[in-house]
Nucleic acid binder design. Structure first.
Length: 278
DNA sequence: ACCCAGTTTCGTCATGGACT
DNA sequence: AGTCCATGACGAAACTGGGT
């Protein structure tokens, strides 16, 4: 149906030596054209040694260089592929192609998982279509406000421009981490007090009475970018984690079925043996 | 309908490893 | 040493299901 992979023209049923998965119907990948550029992205150095993620359009059975891969097709088109042996590096013959979609995983059974990066050639899945369920959209709208919004509500969402004037910096009192600026030319009776957080990057725009308005706009922008990147990274990390867990769960169910099959086989063989000895 | 405890999701921070 | 990235940890907000 969806993706099929064939290496060197040979089509192998990966489940031939394993148990047939009952809940999911693996596909035999029959043709690989290589548009996907796959390369080793990184070695995870945690308990699972390294990890490889290959994103496929759907899942199937894949054989690469005599390595049999078991895969499970997920209803949501996210795929999980597990190899029976550890392959490093994973490579495709020239001219082969794996059609890919995001959110799939290839995992080797030996714990040698590696991340594969795929260059998308298709038109779909530009990310905007990713899980655009009503729930998802609602979540995005109703979730805890971002730091930007919080900042905005605190009155600091926009660049704070302080009229030129004398500014007094009182440090070490009041809320830890905050500085108090007392402005002598304030129009209010008690004088204006501005506080800003003293973070590594957190600063705001304070036009100097002399010279250009220095500030940290740059640092703030960098911080914005850093947070944005980290936000994206966290999302991706969680997605991978979910995928990995799903992969493990699939593996568990596969092994359970395999175990059951072997138990049944053993039982029937025992019975056969018993009949012959009687 | 309301409350509440447990769960899920998300953004941010801290940190370690890889890379330059 | 500095930068970047991935990820665990944490807290906050939203969601969920059960009890009243």
């Amino acid at each position: 149906m969806d993706s099929m992979v064939e290496e060197n023209g040979s089509v192998v049923d990966p489940l031939a030596q394993g148990s047939q998965s009952g809940e999911t119907a693996p596909n035999i990948v029959t043709s690989v054209q290589s548009q996907a550029r796959i390369h080793n992205q990184q070695q995870q150095q945690q308990q699972h040694s390294s990890q490889q993620y290959l994103q496929l359009a759907s899942t199937s059975i894949v054989q690469l260089d005599a390595v049999q891969v078991q895969s499970v097709i997920q209803p949501n088109q996210q795929s999980v592929i597990q190899t029976a042996t550890n392959i490093q590096p994973l490579s495709l013959s020239k001219g082969n192609v794996i059609l890919v979609k995001p959110n799939s995983v290839i995992q080797t059974a030996q714990g040698g998982l590696q991340t594969l990066q795929v260059v998308e050639t298709g038109s779909d899945d530009d990310g905007s279509s990713e899980e655009e369920s009503p729930k998802r959209r609602r979540d995005m709208l109703s979730r805890r406000p971002s730091y930007r919004k919080i900042l905005s509500e605190l009155g600091g969402g926009e660049i704070t421009v302080i009229p030129a004037g004398s500014i007094q910096l009182a440090q070490g009192e009041g809320v830890p981490g905050l500085h108090t600026l007392n402005m002598s030319n304030s129009t209010t009776a008690g004088g204006t007090i501005v506080q800003y957080a003293q973070g590594p990057d957190a600063q705001f725009f304070v036009p100097a009475s002399t010279g250009p308005g220095v500030v940290v706009e740059d640092a703030a922008r960098k911080r914005e970018q850093r947070l944005m990147k980290n936000r994206e990274a966290a999302r991706e990390c969680r997605r991978k984690k979910k995928e990995y867990i799903k992969c493990l769960e699939n593996r568990v169910s596969t092994l359970e079925m395999r175990n059951q099959t072997l138990m049944d086989e053993l039982k029937s063989l025992k019975e056969l043996y018993q009949q012959k000895t009687d």
